[in-house]
């Protein structure tokens, strides 16, 4: 009986249903990110080395993003920087999500635990984000570890709030009461009834924190509190280029900045489309 059908197909994607199109979009964006990550790992280190013969060259076929004041290829540097950013972002959002899972489930354990979690969320929200990242990063001795942990430990608040609200809503459901009446423990209910409902939230939350993490990493590094200057991070590239902008070397800031934006948008597109698939009200369109 099952017939594959197409609805409202438009343009080049005609013949695919909405879910197929969404998945296609997600795959394309993921592919883009994977390519950036992979090429940053396998990039030829010689192209990152200084070459004073070709200093401050404008974008050309040989150097698509131009070169800097030490003759380094900006395309290679940008790619490496983006790779680093994606890794930092992934680690940081994984840490954030983990913290929200733990705190979210903790909040369902009882009234005292719930108050504690809300208090913790409020506490973290009352300190300016960037300041906290810088403090943690410096406290941990800076570098990649400092930034990852700094960003990770500051981005769990909003997701924890979402998770906590979701758990509160699930806890009022009849089937939870029934489960209690069957003598099931809070921990059993949290694991079997509540957790399955939260998996999509976690997945989505992790992806949506990702762009934040990347941007914060870049800003902290830009301000000089993040990754060390010899690492080709986007933040470093941007802050260095500041000094040369007045001299008319616009490509030093433009291309790395643009690439960062594209990566962030790509992650955002993935998150939004995943959200569409997981939203039960839109699930069957």
């Amino acid at each position: 009986m099952s017939t594959s059908v197409a609805l409202n197909g438009k343009g080049m994607l005609r013949g695919l249903n909405l879910r197929q199109r969404t998945i296609l979009l997600i795959s394309l964006m993921s592919l883009l990110l994977m390519t950036v990550l992979a090429s940053s790992l396998y990039i030829d280190s010689s192209s990152l080395s200084t070459n004073f013969d070709s200093r401050n060259l404008a974008p050309s076929l040989e150097h698509p993003f131009g070169t800097d004041w030490m003759g380094r290829d900006m395309f290679a540097r940008t790619l490496t920087g983006l790779g680093l950013s994606i890794m930092v972002g992934a680690f940081a959002s994984a840490i954030s999500t983990f913290v929200s899972v733990v705190l979210g489930l903790l909040s369902s354990m009882g009234r005292a635990a719930d108050s504690f979690v809300s208090w913790l969320v409020d506490l973290f929200l009352s300190i300016p984000h960037l300041l906290l990242i810088i403090l943690i990063s410096i406290g941990l001795g800076g570098g990649a570890t400092g930034v990852i942990i700094g960003v990770g430990l500051t981005h769990w608040t909003s997701l924890t709030r979402v998770v906590r609200a979701e758990i509160k809503q699930i806890n009022t459901q009849d089937y939870i009461h029934i489960s209690r009446n069957f003598g099931k423990s809070n921990w059993w209910i949290a694991r079997k009834h509540i957790l399955p409902h939260l998996v999509p939230q976690f997945l989505l939350g992790m992806i949506l924190v990702f762009p934040h993490a990347i941007l914060h990493e870049a800003s902290v590094t830009f301000l000089g509190f993040g990754l060390s200057p010899h690492e080709p991070a986007i933040g470093i590239i941007l802050s260095e280029s500041m000094r040369y902008l007045a001299a008319g070397y616009w490509w030093l800031a433009f291309f790395p900045g643009m690439s960062l934006l594209i990566v962030v948008l790509a992650v955002d597109v993935i998150g939004e489309n995943l959200g569409k698939i997981m939203d039960p009200r839109k699930a069957h369109e």
Binding site: S2, S4, V5, L7, N17, R19, H284
Partner: peptide, 13 residues
């Protein structure tokens, strides 16, 4: 009739 996704990407009526 309604179109629904069954498993993965297939829609059924």
């Amino acid at each position: 009739s309604f179109f629904q996704y069954t498993s993965g990407l297939r829609q059924t009526e």
